[in-house]
Amino acid sequence: MTTRRAFLALLALPASAVAGEDAVAAAIREAVGDAPIADGGITLRVPAVAENGGQVPLMVLVESPMTAADHVSAIHVFATRNPTPGVATFRLTPLLARAEVQTRIRLAEDQRIIVLAQSNDGRVRRATAELRVTTGGCLS
């Protein structure tokens, strides 16, 4: 079992090992462009404390009827304090019964997760969650 400190010592990375706010902002812009972002309409479930940063369960559920006329077309997940902010982008279609995805993510240290949900009309909604990470997921 690697302690978090030992994990950090192992990182053979330059000073920019943490992505930083600029990289997060750039990743968000790349995902949704300049569309205005509103909070709400998303249930984001993650543990408050992740024992193992390598496998952190994440559930995203966006309020949406998921019809051809009105559906969530993409869910983007970002980690604000990983070496790189990207986690995954999910492309959804109305064939899904609901705008819900569950997965597992890896986190290097305590940080905030940002989830953006894009609707087919261009609307972008956001949810965030703060997590503490006991043992960093050494992989990202």
């Binding site: 390598g54 496998q55 952190v56 997940v77 970002f78 980690a79 990983n82 070496p83 790189t84 902010p85 990207g86 986690v87 995954a88 982008t89 999910f90 492309r91 959804l92 279609t93 064939l95 899904l96 019964a97 609901r98 819900e100 995805v101 569950q102 997965t103 597992r104 993510i105 890896r106 986190l107 997921g137 992989l139 990202s140």
Partner: peptide
């Protein structure tokens, strides 16, 4: 034959990627 869901993975996706979703 029709796309239900697709995912693009970046560095923050865990080893042994696991996904759950719901279809009618």
């Amino acid at each position: 034959g029709e796309t239900v869901l697709s995912a693009e993975f970046r560095n923050g996706t865990s080893a042994n990627p696991y996904h759950v979703f719901f279809v009618r």
